[in-house]
Nucleic acid binder design. Structure first.
Lengths: 189, 189, 189, 189
DNA sequence: CATGAATGAGTGTTCATTCAT
DNA sequence: GATGAATGAACACTCATTCAT
């Protein structure tokens, strides 16, 4: 019981560190955030961070893993319904996540386009995005679209464009408009 | 004349450093490229880089400025033609640039999504992209599109999506397909 | 207790660095003493100096603070006696300190007459010297001197002159003579 | 004739540099003043400074030499008069110089109390101050003072004290008062 | 679990000086 | 005389990481 308690505490501590680190990484940049700054902000000692995560690099991977699994949960939280409704749910989930996990997506973009950090996270990330692309393709097939491959390609480009545009300056109007446009184009046949 | 010679040499030296720096920044990442590494690779002394550019940050700005002005030249090298043709030229120029100045665009994405580097280049960059967006909007108007605002918005999102997708893994096929799609959608009424 | 031990060790480490730094600053000059030289001489790593003091400038301030507080202790270690005896004690304390803390006073003069270092220490120093001047004035009043203001002014000029002259070439005879003269003039009415 | 002209021009150029350098050295500090800053301020090229002076160290020596010889001129500009009048003239010349060549004396103090710069100027300076001390001693003898050695020692300590006190904070009142006190003590028997 | 003193390689930058023109 | 591009050693400082307690 004691162990369980201590473990739980450790988990809380780890999650707390992850949250603080994500905030700092996304607002200051990964390379501009020192491990010391994370420790200070999280109110822990230098040693504890390395006890839990081993390295700064590994802390970064933990952030990505933890956040992606949370987002996955949201995406998969769907009862089975008709494909159009499903795709709309996915679109909404993604665009909602963009605002809710804004910090994460900021970090995500930063990491993905820097050679050194990209190498660290590419594994965790690529699996996730492949799964997502396949999902959309399947839904478009079920929806009876003539060119599901072409359409899902277009869809993905548009989705990435929405993300990249929004994250470049956090313009909310852009986000609303993009969501509307993407629904118009790919939900109605 | 003597002065001209010496100035010319200095200009060459500066441009050489800029080129080397761009290559290293884009392949290794800005923060992972030391000024020393740039000097070594360029075959110059530590001091010369700072003599010419003053700081690493300023070197970065110089890269962005120099490249953007080159790209601008290409975009504006248009005789007057009908708007459809002009838009196609712009699309081609942009997608060509993506391959030709691939290094620059890699760097561009990395810089734009990192808070610290973004701050450094935002001024130089935003002017450029605003000008480009306005241009597309005007062309769409001239083409007689019903909703030039909505269409140019879509166009921009799609263009950004193409860029972001391509630069994430340098998949050439994706680029070809995206160019084709964007032409289909926005060149034919 | 454990904490106390570790803190104590840290305090020793800091004091050791201060002592080494003072020696090097005073013998080589502040600007000619690199932080690395201090670390080497003190047998510590580069990082530790900055861990404890944050900057070279702050190390300098710590030296001044620490030494001034030591000297203050000596000056104030007086039982209550008649003003003449008190003034003599103060004169002796000051002239003794000049020999005992010779390194500090060398540094003090160097710092005080350089614009950049002066700015760093002026705060710590001025308070100390004001307090001292006031003390002498009060004693001269108690001694019943006719012009305590004029006399304490003269006294201060003479004291500063003794210091400056001695520290310019470390001539011991000069110091003995100056101490004798100052006592003759300001202790006897 | 042409040569003379060119030489004259060179002398002007050299003197100009010396003046600029003295100003910068005294206001920013010797070590905090880069040769480049001097060149910029003087409106000359990097090379010219080194063409004229060979090194920063040598520029410093030139400043000291040039200024001391100017001050010497002032001190020696005396018709022969009675010793009391002569001493008063010397006192006045020195205290006037303190205000007129304030920049030089600031620099002088800074240099004299820093080990590295002291080594550079000690030769030029010590000769000058020895000569001055001897002069005062001789005058006190002629004035018929009982203890010319002791008095001239006191005088020197007081003079140095006045200088050091004034230069520590450039308090004009202090200077006036000190001049008055020194005349009272050593001009009247 | 947790602390924080200690490490040392690495960073961007400065600066006196040289030299071809 | 005069220029200014070029040099390279030195510098203050940072930071991920370790380890004794």
């Amino acid at each position: 019981m004691k162990k369980a308690k201590s473990q739980e505490k450790a988990e809380q501590s780890k999650e707390h560190i992850v949250l603080v680190a994500m905030r700092l990484f996304s607002t200051r940049g990964y390379h501009k955030t020192s491990t010391q700054a994370i420790c200070d902000e999280a109110g822990i000692s230098t040693g504890l961070l390395f006890y839990h995560f081993g390295s700064k690099e590994n802390l970064l991977k933990s952030i990505v893993k933890m956040t992606l699994s949370k987002i996955d949960e949201t995406l998969e939280h769907n009862g089975e319904e008709d494909p159009v409704q499903l795709l709309e749910n996915i679109i909404d989930a993604f665009f909602d996540s963009l605002k809710e996990n804004s910090q994460y997506w900021d970090l995500y973009m930063a990491l993905l386009y820097q050679p050194d950090t990209k190498a660290q996270i590419v594994e965790e990330v690529s699996e996730h995005s492949t799964k997502f692309r396949r999902r959309v393709f399947e839904l478009m097939e079920k929806m009876g679209r003539k060119d599901p491959a072409g359409d899902s390609f277009e869809f993905e480009v548009f989705r990435v464009g929405s993300f990249a545009s929004y994250l470049a300056n956090h313009n909310e109007k852009l986000l609303i408009q993009a969501r509307k446009k993407i629904k118009e184009r790919y939900l109605n046949l």
